[in-house]
């Protein structure tokens, strides 16, 4: 059973439905026991970094997340759930993250190297270049399109953690992989067939 952590930050139904369509059982929950019993854990999230951390705290969900990581359960972070895994974010002041992975969350650039202005949020379909073939990316090639919507990006402290890169003004880590943690800036649940493949692979990850 896959536990999708519900902390009042965004629409989780599509993540759940995405897993179900590819044959995995998934529940949306903030029940600590259910999360502890799950085989896989997903931390989604949209909204502001500080609000997300506050809600995780308020619902007592930080310990279950640390526990899932400690138990080496396959763990998927999506969008803000990806950013939260790192040490801190500069979104609306400096906020501490979960600190599970070393690195920082920074604002996307508003101009590219040629001085052309960039629309923020980075919104829409962009490609990933695969730096390391993490198990959730089985069968997916560099150049695959996935859906993004974000204004901040992750700068991992260790470059070798970067799983895919994406270009928007700069080349940034659009996903990371370390041990049993895979986390992406893009939304697999909004990325049609490619995204559903990632969800399917994640659910099959042991």
């Amino acid at each position: 059973m896959i536990a999708i952590i519900d902390y009042d930050m965004g629409n989780l139904r599509s993540v759940q439905k995405g897993f179900e369509v590819v044959g995995h059982r998934a529940v949306v929950t903030r029940d600590i026991e259910t999360i502890n019993q799950a085989s896989h854990v997903v931390l989604p999230g949209v909204g502001a970094f500080g609000d997300c951390m506050n809600n995780l705290n308020r619902y007592g969900l930080i310990d279950p997340i640390y526990r899932a990581i400690r138990d080496e359960k396959p763990f998927l972070g999506i969008c803000l759930g990806y950013q939260l895994l790192f040490e801190e974010s500069e979104e609306f002041g400096v906020h501490k993250g979960l600190g599970i992975l070393p690195g920082k969350v920074k604002a996307m650039l508003t101009v590219d190297a040629q001085g052309a202005s960039l629309k923020i949020p980075h919104m829409g379909w962009n490609t990933i270049q695969i730096a390391q073939p993490a198990p959730p990316l089985n069968g997916i090639d560099s150049g695959a399109f996935v859906y993004f919507v974000h204004s901040f990006y992750v700068e991992p402290a260790q470059a070798e953690m970067t799983c895919t890169t994406t270009e928007y003004g700069i080349s940034f880590a659009s996903s990371v992989w370390q041990g049993k943690v895979f986390a992406s800036q893009f939304h697999p649940e909004k990325s049609q067939g490619i995204g559903l493949s990632i969800l399917k692979n994640f659910g099959n990850w042991r």
Binding site: G139, I140, A144, F145, Q192, G193, I194, L196, S197, K200
Partner: peptide, 8 residues
Amino acid sequence: QRQFCSPV
């Protein structure tokens, strides 16, 4: 462009 990737 349309990608052919069937997850099922």
